[in-house]
Each structure stands twice: as C-alpha cells, then as structure tokens.
Design a binder for these strands. Structure first.
Length: 419
RNA sequence: GUGGGCGUCGUCAAGCGGUUAAGACCCUGGGUUGUGGCUCCAGUAUACGUGAGUUCGAAUCUCACCGCCCACCCCA
C-alpha cells in the first residue's frame, strides 16, 4: 500500500464541511473590510523566500521544500506573504492605487517534525494591506482577525501585541541587549549562545529555566523605541481601545520572520498543545522595497486553519453538518426506475439535491441508505404509483407518508421544508 | 536533529508465554416477498506494524527497524 507522505493529512468528507464553513466565514469577513482574493502559485523562486523571510531564519535555513528544475531553485511556499508581495510588484498592482488589500487561503509547506498543531502541509488564511504606514491599518488588520475569531465563536483567544521597532531603534536595542547578555554569555544554553549574534532577541523567549533566570532585568524593546515608533505604538493601543478589542502588551512577542517592523501581534490559545499561536502578524515596512518594489509599507496576518479547527474542536464547538441531500427517489421495477430517473433530473434542475441509489438495492436497503445519509424525504415509485400518476412521499423525521401527484412533488418537498 | 509514549479486523477494544485471537460498533442480508431509525437473527474480514532472537511453544519476553502521537526547537 502506498501511504500518505509524512506530515500530510487528508481532509475527509466528515471534516471538509468544517473547512468550508470557516473558509466562507473568513472570505465574507475579509470582503466586508474591502479585501479581495489573490491567488499566487504554490511554487516560487527559492530566492524570494531567502530574501523575503530572511536567510538566517529557521524557516529558510532548514524547513523549506526546495528542489531544482531546469537549473532553477524552486520552493513550495512556506508562508503566504512573500508570494503576494511578489505578485504585487510583478504585476505593478501599486499602479491601481493604494491601499491595496488582498486576502488568500493557501496551503503552506514546512519540513518540520510533526506534533500537535504542526504539520508539514498546513493551511493559512491571510490578509495583506499595502501602502498604509499609519496605525489605522494595523488596527484594522487586527480587528479583522479578531472578527474572524469571534464570529467563529472563539472567545478565549488572547491578543498579544508588541512593537519591535523600526530598523533604527532595533539596532540600538540590539546593542543594548547584547551588552546586557555578554557578561553571562557562557552560562546560557547552546541555542541561546548561537543566537547571540544572529538574533539576540530570540534569547528572551528561551524556555530553559536557567536562561529565563539570566534574562531577568534585560532591557525591553519598548524602552528603546524611537519617537515615531513609540507614538505609533501608543496610537495602535488607542485605536484598539476604540474598536473594543482587548489585548495585552507582551514584550516577548518577536515574530520569527525577519521582515517584521513595528507592530507584531499574535492571537494565542491554550488549546493547541505546545503550539499556541492561532494567528500571527504584524507590519513589514521594508519588505516590498527589499524585494525590488517601490518603497511601500505593509501589514498583515496569517491564521492557521488547522489550528483554528483544533481550537474549535477543543472548545466543543459544534458545526452542523449540512445534509448531503434533500430527497431520495426510489423506483421499483423497470418502468418506475426510468420514471425515478426522470423525476430526479427534473428536481435537480430546480435546485434540489436528489439521490438515486446507484447500487439498485432493495427498498429496505434504500431506506437504510436514506437514513444513513440523513435524507429528510424519500419518494417511492412503484407500479401502483405509476398507474395513478403519483409518488409516495415519506417524511423521514415524522415517519408520515402520503401520495402526491407527480407534478406536485417539488411543491410538496418545499412546503415540507417550510414547516 | 534530540527525547518520551504507543502499535491486535474499517473503528473502539479484550487478551499479558500454550485460546478456533473475545466482544462491541460499522458494513451486508433477512424477520413472509413495496418502507429506515429501535429490536432480533445471520453473514463478511489475509487484525496481532515488519524482521530477527529467546522458548517445545510468542499477540504476549528481548533487540532492531518502521509508523503514529507528544515534547524540545521553530512557527500558522
């Protein structure tokens, strides 16, 4: 037997309706805020991610699905933003006027070891807003994410926000942080020591208790923000207050992708095992320029669909499975069967979901079939009905049955629905 | 890459050195030949992850490998 590659998952019909539901919800909300769908390819030049995400990040260094084809290095997208930025630049969408607001639903690929809330293929909803440098955009992006979560009934996801400053204040902070850490550097764990030069900010959220202890009293990014960044952060908080979105400032939020500036935020849930982020995003003012586009600010988020579904599941949310079908028609005998087919075709043309038992089983079996599929109505046509020009229509929920004229079948089923 | 836990029919699950390897659910058929969900009966299955080893004998013990899950790391 050939089995599914490690880290991949099938979404079966017993689950797919949930996907459809949350995807619809997301689309509807994104469109309410004026976002439009963009679809970019699964595969991009490896270079796009190396430059966009940052080639010192773990994602780029060891998690990408890359391959060579015709002398080019290509990569399955590990996240959604880079591709959208590339499309924005390449199609000169900035000429259509700003802000440019896009949403997408996409699979992403990261070669990682699986655990709860983490797989090698996962799916994201995301939005990107290009062109606005002010905090109104950030607040709106966060509000949208909040809107999606709450409208799905997730009320315990906590919003954490932080500002990681612009390149200027970050450089200063970085120096201050390194100065603080340097004297005890040899006492930190291996990974932390290796991060000292690369990305000292990540040392702050190391989980080892020794490192945590050593990090106490370290300078905080927020204290090193320059005038502009500080004002922006204050404004963002004020705007969130206006929108009534609860948040807490968490200075340890440091997005793992290099392109973020200023605003960084996460919605976290404790229902995801060791993973906690259900949605992560922030501002990336230099990314578009860095990828060869005009100097254009941006802000957006990515929301993990699997994680979203996990949170929903763990919190016991029930999504009603849509009935697969409205009516089952069974014809008994040669002639009646033909009649059944004709009727089914006609009913479908009127928009009804109608099944015929293609296994041509006995009546009893067909009723069981209808029952298993939770079909509300079954129409039976036999010789009797045929000669009278009627069908026997059974309401499966009330176990009542009556003969209705053939040409009234549609009406009967519909009025049944209204009850 | 590094730890920990787990692998028995499609699913759940007994068995803990000698059994025809239970049981339940699901599925299929039937309970007087045109009616489901409840009930009763019957039927179907190449289930002990793979390979070695210990033993007279292994699903049961040992080892290796594989797979799954969880955690580190990283992130959605």
């Amino acid at each position: 037997m050939i089995s599914i590659p490690k880290g991949m998952k099938d979404v079966l019909p017993s689950e797919s309706y949930k996907w459809q539901f949350v995807e619809e919800e997301f689309k509807t909300i994104a469109e309410k805020y004026g976002y439009r769908e963009i679809r970019t390819p699964m595969v991009e030049a490896t270079e796009l991610f190396a430059r966009g995400i940052g080639d010192t990040t773990d994602v780029v260094q060891k998690e990408m699905y890359s391959f060579e084809k015709a002398d080019r290095s290509l990569t399955l997208k590990p996240e959604g933003t880079a591709g959208v930025v590339r499309a924005f630049i390449e199609n000169k969408l900035y000429a259509e006027g700003l802000p440019a607001k896009y949403y997408y639903i996409t699979p992403c690929y990261r070669y990682e070891k699986m655990q709860k809330g983490r797989s090698r293929e996962f799916h994201q909803f995301g939005i990107e807003c290009f062109g606005a440098s002010g905090m109104m955009a950030d607040a709106e992006v966060i509000l949208l994410a909040y809107d999606v979560l709450t409208s799905l009934g997730i009320d315990d996801a906590k919003l954490k926000i932080n500002s990681i400053g612009c390149p200027n204040c970050r450089a200063e902070y970085r120096k201050a942080l390194q100065d603080f850490l340097r004297p005890n550097l040899d006492k930190f764990c291996d990974t932390c020591r290796s991060r000292f030069d690369r990305n000292p900010m990540r040392i702050l959220d190391c989980k080892s208790s020794e490192c945590k202890e050593l990090v106490k009293g370290a300078p905080v990014m927020l204290d090193y923000l320059d005038e502009e960044c500080r004002k922006d952060f204050e404004e963002l908080k004020a705007l969130l207050d206006v929108y009534g979105v609860p948040y807490e400032v968490d200075t340890s939020i440091v997005r793992g992708l290099d392109y973020y500036t200023k605003t960084a935020f996460e919605f976290v849930s404790d229902k995801l095992g060791a993973q906690s982020t259900v949605c992560g995003g922030g501002r990336y003012d230099k990314l578009i320029e860095q990828l060869g586009g005009p100097d254009t600010p941006g802000v957006g988020f990515g929301m993990g669909i699997e994680r979203l579904l996990l949170v929903l599941e763990e919190s016991g949310a029930e999504m009603e499975a849509d009935k697969a079908c409205d009516l089952l028609i069974c014809g008994l005998g040669e002639k009646a069967r033909i009649k059944a087919l004709e009727l089914a075709k006609e009913m479908r043309e009127f928009g009804l979901r109608v099944i015929i038992d293609v296994m041509d089983r006995g009546l009893k079996a067909q009723f069981k079939y209808a029952d298993r599929l939770n079909v509300p109505y079954v129409a039976v046509i036999g010789d009797d009905e045929l000669s009278k020009g009627v069908v026997s229509l059974r309401d499966m929920n009330s176990s009542t049955q009556e003969e209705v004229p053939e040409n009234k079948l549609l009406e009967a089923v519909f009025t049944g629905f209204l009850k």
